[in-house]
Amino acid sequence: MKRATKSKAAPAAAATPRRDALTETRVWQVYARQKYEEPLHEIGAIVADDVELAKVYARSIYDEFAWVEMTLIPREHIVTVIAS
């Protein structure tokens, strides 16, 4: 089949090794609630380098309940006040 796509140089400066390119490292804590009168609570975590993919993953993985709200917080933004 004809190859139609013309590829310019990748925006990223250098080619990333294949394994590294497909390995995601950014962790997002997932918070959700089933009822408006409930507070958000942590239901788990997912790994995704891209925020839009993180949303897809969170919805796919934590789909066991009909949540009324779900939010993601990048783990690196969480500040520990009292360490365990």
């Binding site: 990748a10 925006p11 990223a12 250098a14 080619a15 294949r18 390119a21 891209d50 949303k55």
Partner: peptide, 18 residues
């Protein structure tokens, strides 16, 4: 959203992945 995210991810990786 999944397709868009992965197209960007694979394209930006460069090299053989791109």
């Amino acid at each position: 959203t999944h397709g868009e995210g992965w197209v960007a991810r694979l394209a930006n990786a460069g090299g053989a992945v791109r």
